[in-house]
């Protein structure tokens, strides 16, 4: 579903991504772990064609993102760290606008149903979203992804800053999407959630994928141990990695 082949990206002199190879199949929740600056966001941005690769390809369902950006975006949904919406519109209006941008149109009731499914309180649906908490906005973000009927999801630290309950609800939603066969790629710092929700874990360091784990085969403690081992290993980056992990 999502495939990166020798994906390379440079920002000036800095090599953000050095020949990344990875695959996320349908029904997978692939969690990307790694220190800040390891290349997680860059990977997601490349899948969204927000930036252009300097080498290699990113494909969605076999379509090259750089060559068919509009086609691939029909298959993708994106939930950033902060789901940003139009503050002066209600949740329902935001959802309708983004759905229409994605080429879908639903009835009023269907839009309400999407918002109910992601657990947004009934009374909040017709309120302008500028009064929303982050958790509520993230839920709208998921509703947008649901309504888009995306085959692949790209999530960039979507639970950062959420309280445990909200974070847990979010994970439930992901599992729900996974059960529909979506391929989910999520960048995160939350080792616990990654092990709990994810099916696979990829550890990134300095623009490279240094390890891949199947969550079924490891314990929470293993994940943390392996992660820290990688962060401490080798050269002058170790301290940075340990600092931010």
């Amino acid at each position: 579903m999502l495939q990166a082949t020798k994906l390379t990206k440079n920002y000036g002199d800095i090599e953000a991504l050095k020949g990344l190879d990875m695959t996320v199949e349908g029904g997978d929740i692939y969690c990307l772990l790694g220190a800040n600056g390891a290349g997680k966001t860059t990977t997601i941005s490349l899948f969204l064609n927000f930036i252009r690769p300097d080498g290699g390809t990113a494909t969605v369902c076999g379509l090259d993102v750089a060559e068919q950006p509009l086609e691939t975006k029909k298959l993708l949904a994106y939930i950033p760290e902060q789901v940003m919406l139009y503050g002066n519109l209600t949740a329902l209006e935001n959802l309708r606008y983004f759905s229409q941008l994605g080429g879908h149109d639903y009835s009023q009731d269907e839009y309400r149903d999407f918002l109910r499914r992601v657990g947004l309180e009934e009374e909040a649906v017709d309120r302008r979203v500028k009064t929303y908490s982050k958790g509520m906005r993230q839920k709208v973000g998921v509703a947008i992804a649901l309504a888009k009927q995306a085959r692949a999801l790209l999530l960039d630290e979507p639970t950062a800053g959420l309280d445990p309950k909200a974070s847990n609800e979010f994970s439930e939603l992901l599992l729900n999407l996974k059960s529909h066969g979506a391929a989910i790629l999520m960048a995160t710092h939350d080792l616990f959630r990654a092990k709990e929700t994810g099916t696979r874990i990829g550890i990134m360091k300095e623009g490279r994928l240094v390890d891949e784990l199947s969550t079924g085969e490891v314990t929470h403690a293993d994940v943390e141990k392996i992660y820290l081992q990688h962060m401490h290993a080798g050269g002058h980056y170790a301290q940075d990695g340990a600092g931010s992990a």
Partner: peptide, 13 residues
């Protein structure tokens, strides 16, 4: 505002 990324994640050039 961050909405640009939200929009451009949709098939809009």
């Amino acid at each position: 505002r961050g909405t640009l990324a939200m929009i451009l994640a949709h098939p809009i050039s």
